[in-house]
């Protein structure tokens, strides 16, 4: 198993798509801060709203003049936007490429049927997928915190803020990993880039949330609300401070169940599937 992980890790180090995805995450975080900086300039009155045809609105209203944007947001709230909008999408796409690519170039044949059990091969590949997801989450969290310290200032350095930030990163990374576990398994089963991308778009684009809302309607007579256990809904619902036991428990249960189910389904499929 360690040898398999060693091989996968080496591959990851040589993977251009992994590098590109990491660069995309860095660029996305910087872009978000760039946007906030521009809004801040408008709010401070340094730049007139509507310059070059660009209008800045906050909740549909003209931004309050004189107040800095960075005084009204926390580093956790900015990270929440980064996670929901960028990290799920980018890490999901990377995992599709990583998993489907193995079948596309036939490299899976170099491992399967060569003395390793199918279970070990699947587990190693899945673990590396989850590890890359974690790397991307941590990359965005650390960069966001560093930029937050620059733009927001001292507020980020307070002990309570840092503690909340760390808890939030832990919770959100667990959710992103569980989502990527589902994406990786669907990619493994379908072995198709197109299917994988559609799934990522459905997840990141909120279509999955709509489906779960429909499920809520169907099951309303049974007092069951599946949408409260769906991962993307939980990502949006997850607080950035003041963590209540109920939501934390719901997140932990959902992560364990979704990750466990997707891992078991992937393992079962990989065991019986023919390798091409």
């Amino acid at each position: 198993m360690i040898n398999l992980l060693n091989g996968e890790w080496y591959k990851l180090g040589k993977s251009r798509s992994f590098l590109v995805c990491c660069i995309c995450i860095v660029a996305s975080v910087c872009l978000l801060y760039g946007m906030l900086f521009l809004v801040d300039e408008v709010q401070k009155g340094n730049v007139e709203n509507g310059t070059a045809g660009v209008f800045v609105t906050v909740d549909g209203q003209e931004p309050l003049s004189g107040q800095s944007v960075f005084e009204s947001v926390t580093v956790g709230e900015i990270l929440q936007n980064i996670m929901v909008v960028f990290v799920v999408l980018i890490s999901g796409i990377f995992n599709i490429i990583f998993v489907v690519g193995e079948y596309g170039n036939g490299a899976m044949k170099n491992l399967a049927g060569k003395g390793y059990s199918r279970g070990k091969i699947f587990a190693a590949k899945h673990m590396v997928c989850m590890l890359t997801t974690e790397i991307m989450v941590l990359l965005s969290a650390i960069l966001n915190y560093a930029l937050g310290c620059i733009f927001i200032g001292k507020a980020c350095l307070e002990g309570a803020v840092l503690k909340d930030y760390v808890i939030y990163v832990l919770l959100i990374s667990a959710l992103v990993v569980a989502i990527n576990s589902i994406i990786a398994v669907i990619s493994e089963i379908s072995r198709s880039l197109a299917v994988g991308i559609v799934v990522v778009v459905c997840v990141a684009g909120g279509i999955s949330s709509l489906l779960f809302n429909a499920l809520d309607l169907l099951l309303h007579n049974f007092s069951v609300q599946p949408s409260s256990y769906w991962l993307t809904n939980l990502m949006e619902e997850c607080p950035v401070s003041g963590f209540e036991t109920e939501i934390v428990l719901r997140i932990v249960i959902s992560v364990v169940v979704w990750f466990g189910v997707s891992f078991a389904a992937g393992m079962w499929h990989f065991h019986k599937a023919d390798i091409k």
């Binding site: 360690i2 040898n3 091989g7 080496y10 036939g106 490299a107 899976m108």
Partner: peptide, 28 residues
């Protein structure tokens, strides 16, 4: 057993040496 079935399983963006290095590491 060694196998070469249908097309060779290789990573096109790696060199020949890197391709074999993946195998070397994967099999310890």
């Amino acid at each position: 057993i060694g196998t070469l079935i249908e097309n060779p399983g290789i990573y096109p963006n790696m060199t020949a040496e890197e391709n074999l290095e993946v195998i070397r590491r994967s099999f310890g």
